[in-house]
């Protein structure tokens, strides 16, 4: 499934970003994620996590600094490639699933990569199989449960055969059973992964490395276990250790 295995890195250096209204959302953010690594991104609401994620896919462009994905700088010219490499899964699956049927949604990415009809169908089949939803192509998106929507949302980017998955709050709004099965799914997937989450149990369970953001800056970056032990650091940024 994975091509260019040696290139799926995320490399952000000195990234600054201000919204048109002047609000500075990111301040000299630097982050390197090596191939196959799974990294958690935590921090309070408004810390700039989502803004950072939108940069990895070229939806937002840096005011200053460099964003490189798989060794390629994110530019207008590279956008087609970058968007196929980086699978961005939004927090609200109702934003991610914009087509009436599951098939249409999963086929959207491959179709816009201009793949042939048979290849598109094959990609939809294998993406749905990867999230254990093979029975669902004909279903209407608005009839799905939250857990099902989250899985299909992941399938919509898997169908593009990405090297890197970037997920925003994958477990938000899920009941315990759906959450558990989603965590199992994330553990199965081989891609390089950057996952934003408030779910500290998820972070502790699945990620060896975590990054804390606050007020547009990276304030901590290291081994999850040792950061989770530093309760002063966590409290200073409005976070809680899962042990409490």
């Amino acid at each position: 499934m994975l091509k260019n295995v040696s290139h799926h890195t995320i490399d952000v250096t000195g990234l600054n970003f201000s919204y048109p209204d002047g609000h500075q959302a990111l301040q000299s953010v630097s982050l390197y994620v090596s191939p196959g690594e799974k990294v958690a991104l935590v921090g309070p609401n408004g810390a700039g996590k989502s803004t950072l994620m939108l940069h990895l896919n070229g939806i937002l462009r840096p005011s200053a600094g460099l964003v490189r994905v798989g060794g390629l700088q994110v530019t207008e010219h590279n956008l087609g490639k970058i968007r196929a490499w980086v699978g961005l899964v939004f927090q609200d699956p109702d934003d991610q699933l914009f087509s009436p049927t599951v098939f249409d949604d999963v086929a959207f990415g491959p179709l816009h990569m201009r793949l042939g009809a048979e290849e598109v169908r094959q990609r939809v089949r294998s993406a749905l199989a990867a999230v254990h939803m093979s029975e669902y192509p004909e279903r209407l998106s608005h009839h799905l449960s939250m857990g099902e929507k989250k899985r299909i949302a992941i399938a919509t980017v898997l169908a593009m055969d990405p090297l890197i998955l970037v997920l925003d709050e994958p477990t938000a709004g899920l009941d315990p059973r759906s959450r558990r099965s989603l965590i199992r799914l994330l553990a199965e997937l081989p891609q390089t992964m950057l996952v934003a989450s408030h779910d500290m149990h998820l972070v502790a369970e699945l990620f060896h490395r975590m990054v804390i953001m606050d007020k547009g800056q990276i304030v901590a970056d290291g081994v999850t276990e040792s950061i989770m032990d530093d309760t002063d650091l966590l409290e200073a940024h409005g976070l809680e250790s899962p042990c409490h």
Partner: peptide
Amino acid sequence: RSERVYQAMAARGYRGQIRRLD
């Protein structure tokens, strides 16, 4: 919401063309 949906479309390669299987 339309802004977020647009971003989700752009993230999957949408550049203004609507593509469908024949």
